[in-house]
Structure formats: structure tokens, C-alpha cells
Design a binder for these strands. Structure first.
Lengths: 159, 159
DNA sequence: TTCGCTGCAAAGCTTTTGCAGTGGT
DNA sequence: ACCACTGCAAAAGCTTTGCAGCGAA
């Protein structure tokens, strides 16, 4: 897997030691699109049960700081991580009922935000745009059919 | 305070009981721009120490569901709440070093996102756009001067 | 050989919840 | 008079951390 090699290289360049545990965390991470810390813990421990929970969390923090992972807070629950290293930037559209996440690109936004950032004299480092709504399928359901966790009777919110 | 009256009205219309505790939570909430749940707990208990932590959390959830509060996950730590009821939508530009938060409006984004949402057949309910970067002051510092976990002191910023 | 990294487990921080009693409508 | 709401405190959920030993460079 090409991306994996690159990540290891990049870690090495930054003086971050490549232990077998970190290798495993990286390998498992890049094999998912979105995952929570706990999901990755489970996944990693399925491959090697001796890896400690704390090690995975520490590796995640490192990868995040290194810019390899992005951390997303979606609607509820713990934050999701996403491997962005080597991928073009994209934004998210999420269904608040079923939790479906659509990734899309919108170059015109990128241009607009350059303007905004310039306006305030900022140097842009990263950004996230999230749209929350109802997917075509869920729009057809009555509010009562809404699952417990994906929050709230969203009908009320007039966009 | 006008906004407070409106909020109480709105709660009433939704059949949500107006207890003294909720009144207090609303009053304190609208007097801040951004706050965490724990900050609000402290603030409320300063006025009335008998109010339970759980009550504040439950009230926050209600107000959030009612669309009166928005929940923001900024760079680290617990999420911040923000009173958006009666305010025009705005987005956030945050300095990753000093934690300054600038609020701004960009109507052209709103139009673009309508397009995107239509493209996927979604019904838009809400959205957040966050830009992370370095403010003019912090850009002048060397990377080494950057604090590990930038303190999140929120400047009161006007759009 | 050095010192960054790990496993373990305990603690920490934030939020949620069960229950019995209280109070809004 | 209902039953939603509250206080209390315990538990739950997620993440961090201290420490002693280990292992990558």
C-alpha cells in the first residue's frame, strides 16, 4: 500500500520513532474512511491484543499533529478521525437521521475563503465545512421513525 | 432583555415547562457569547447554588434541540455553546495559537451550499464552516513559541 | 546506550441517568 | 391532579497519565 509507505517516511523525517504498534495503528487507520478512537482501538487489538488503549490514543494524537489525520466532530458522540494525508481536501454533508456522510469538493468555496482569510490578515492552516440535513430517503420518513440517537426532531429547524 | 422574553415564549409554544431553573439557565446563557456546559453550570450556580448540574445539562440539550443554541467543537476541550436565536447566521475563523475567534458572514457561501445540497437531494437543516489559521499577531511568532494547547479565550468579536 | 515508547491501570474530565420527591399548568 | 421536571449521586463514556520496564536508533 503506497500511502502507508509514505506515512512511515514522513514520520521518520519528523524524528518520530517507528514502533510496531504505531505501524499497526497507521495500517489500520488508512484502511478506514472514518473511525472513532475506540473503533480503532478495537480494530488494532483485533490484530494484536497486546496493544494498549493508551498507545492507540497517543498514536492518534501524533498523527493528528503531523497533519495525517483530521478530527471531525459530527453531530453527536465522540469525534471521528479521517485520513487526509495524500487526499484532496473535501467537505462533508451529513444526514442527521441515518448518519450517512457524503464527501464532496467545491473549489469555489476555497476561493471564497481565501478572500475571507485575507480580509482579517490570517494565515489559513485548515478548514472544515459541514452541512447537516436529511438525505432523500430520510426525508420521506415521519419524525416518529427517527432513531433515538441521531438527534432531535429536526423538522422544526427552518433552514 | 428582549431576546429572553422571546425564548420563553418559544419554549412555551413548544409545550416545554418554564421552571425557575430553566429561566435561570436561559438568562445566563444569553448573557454570554460562547460558553462551555461547565462554565454555564458554574455561572448558574453562582446565582442559585441549589440548581443541579444535571438540570443545566438537560436544559442545554433542550435549548440546543429547540434551535436556540448551537454547539461548536473548536480546537480542543469540551464543546462550546453559542446563542444563535434571533441572530443572523455566521461562521468562524479561529487562531490555532491564541484561540481568538472571529465571527463573520459570507452570503455567497450560503448560495453555494444550496447548490450542493440540491445536487444530492438533501434537505438542509444547518451547517457550520470553520477556518483555522494564525492571526496577524501570532504569525509573527516562531513555531517554537506556540503553546501546546492554545488557551481558548474567546474575544468578543463583531461580525 | 539512550531516552522515547509501551503496557497497565488508575485517575480525570465531561456528560448522562435512575429514582423518589417537587412543582408547573 | 397529573406528569414533566428537579436534586442528588452514582455511573457511564471517552481520554489522559504516572510509572517501571522495554526496545528503536
Amino acid at each position: 500500500m503506497k500511502r502507508f509507505v509514505l506515512v512511515e517516511q514522513l514520520l521518520k523525517e519528523r524524528g518520530i520513532r517507528l514502533t510496531s504498534q504505531r505501524s499497526l495503528v497507521v495500517r489500520r487507520a488508512v484502511s478506514h474512511l472514518h473511525f472513532t478512537a475506540e473503533e480503532l482501538v478495537e480494530d488494532v487489538r483485533r490484530m494484536d491484543p497486546t496493544v494498549a488503549r493508551g498507545t492507540v490514543y497517543r498514536a492518534l494524537a501524533l498523527l493528528h499533529e503531523a497533519g495525517i489525520l483530521e478530527k471531525h466532530d459530527f453531530w453527536y458522540g465522540p469525534p471521528y478521525y479521517e485520513v487526509t494525508f495524500g487526499k484532496a481536501h473535501h467537505d462533508h454533508l451529513m444526514c442527521m437521521q441515518c448518519g450517512e456522510i457524503i464527501e464532496f469538493q467545491e473549489p469555489r468555496w476555497e476561493r471564497l475563503q481565501d478572500e475571507v482569510v485575507k480580509r482579517y490578515g490570517y494565515q489559513l492552516l485548515s478548514h472544515t465545512h459541514k452541512l447537516y440535513g436529511l438525505c432523500p430517503a430520510c426525508r420521506r420518513l415521519t419524525p416518529k421513525q427517527a432513531p433515538k440517537h441521531p438527534p432531535l426532531h429536526v423538522e422544526e429547524v427552518v433552514a
